[in-house]
């Protein structure tokens, strides 16, 4: 006796795949609508093009880099059913670290060694909050919201302490080039971020580790029963998220030639927004790097576009916050509709 033969539901499955298509295309459609909207506004108000302007495109691309780096790490965390609230200050901590170390090493050993030492130190320092988050969540079963909120405070305090409560100007030409230079007209920070994007997309979609991130978020108990080292996977996820934030901090220090404890503060909201708008569920189990890229572009276009059309800058927070809430509502309604219960 065949299970499917007893239950032919072609129309229902066709409908389900249609819903799935709309869900995956949702972010793309939203991005296109936004760009068209800003273009029309720009043409009507200033008789100028928004998207045809290379300066705008470059600015949006550079603007997307830091939130996207944080959001890509956050994607792994959210797919696994967690959340990482500490990424913003981990980024700040890394930006202060790279600045301090580069300043100390460069005068003695030169620009190249100074840059390398700064980057290595920043990445190693950013591993620490990730490791602690991971141990708290994986071993001691602290809820991710609380564990990473605690780390938010710790990383913030340590970053300000290391920076002596101020911003740390950095004197290293190689770091400054990394933040502001271009290769063939493409900003170096954008190239580095695209490389990170490709690597993380591969890891999430093609590796066993990536598959286990989904499994942990879909059904932790099933993952444990399948013999997956769930604690190890969880630990790696939070370290990955922290290292992404650390790289964001290095690029920040390069771009502004300064480390600042508050470098990533406003980016927590942006990173979670990018992941959720990109189609990941805050309940865990779904999301993609490509979706997060689209989500980060949407956030950047909203923010840059609002400035471009002369809207008071603080409206950005309002609009991004509203978009997050709408995305979560859409996700929730789809979860109710998507499941076939008998």
């Amino acid at each position: 006796m065949s299970v499917a033969a007893a239950h032919p539901r072609p129309s229902e499955s066709k409908q389900a795949s249609w819903i799935g298509f709309v869900a995956s295309a949702r972010a793309w459609l939203f991005l296109i609508v936004l760009i068209v909207g800003f273009e029309v506004w720009s043409q009507l108000s200033f008789q100028a093009t928004f998207v045809g302007n290379m300066f705008n495109i470059r600015s949006i691309a550079v603007f997307t880099v830091a939130p996207l780096l944080l959001a890509m790490g956050q994607t792994f965390v959210i797919i696994s059913g967690g959340i990482d609230l500490s990424v913003g200050f981990t980024m700040g901590l890394a930006s202060v670290t790279v600045s301090n170390v580069a300043n100390a090493i460069t005068p003695i050993y030169g620009t190249g060694v100074g840059l390398a030492a700064g980057i290595v130190a920043a990445v190693l320092v950013s591993v620490v909050p990730g490791l602690v988050n991971g141990l708290l969540i994986a071993r001691l079963r602290v809820p991710p919201f609380i564990g990473t909120l605690g780390m938010y405070g710790v990383a913030r305090g340590v970053a300000y302490l290391l920076a002596n409560g101020t911003t740390v100007p950095v004197h290293n030409d190689a770091l400054a080039w990394m933040g502001n230079g271009s290769l063939g007209g493409i900003p170096a920070v954008v190239i580095l971020t695209v490389v990170a994007l490709l690597v993380l997309h591969y890891v999430l979609s093609q590796s066993r580790f990536g598959q286990y991130v989904y499994a942990v978020g879909g059904n932790r108990a099933a993952a444990v029963r399948a013999g997956i080292n769930v604690r190890g996977v969880t630990l790696k996820i939070y370290i990955l998220s922290a290292v992404c934030a650390g790289i964001g901090g290095v690029l920040y220090a390069g771009r502004f030639s300064a480390g600042a404890a508050q470098a990533g503060e406003p980016l927590l909201l942006d990173s979670i927004a990018a992941v959720v708008i990109g189609g990941a569920s805050l309940f865990g189990g779904s999301g993609t790097i490509v979706g997060t890229l689209i989500g980060a572009l949407i956030v950047a276009v909203i923010q840059y576009g609002l400035v471009f059309i002369d809207v008071e800058a603080f409206w950005q927070f309002v609009v991004v916050g509203v978009v997050i809430i709408i995305s979560v509502l859409v996700d929730q309604s789809q979860r109710k509709g998507g499941r076939v219960d008998e």
Binding site: Y214, A215, G217, N219, A221, A222, A223, R225, I228, G285
Partner: peptide, 17 residues
């Protein structure tokens, strides 16, 4: 406890292997 709802049939059959 058996299946990860978000993965397809093949991924569930081979989960962990």
């Amino acid at each position: 406890l058996a299946l990860a709802d978000n993965l397809d049939v093949g991924a569930n059959v081979f989960l962990g292997r």
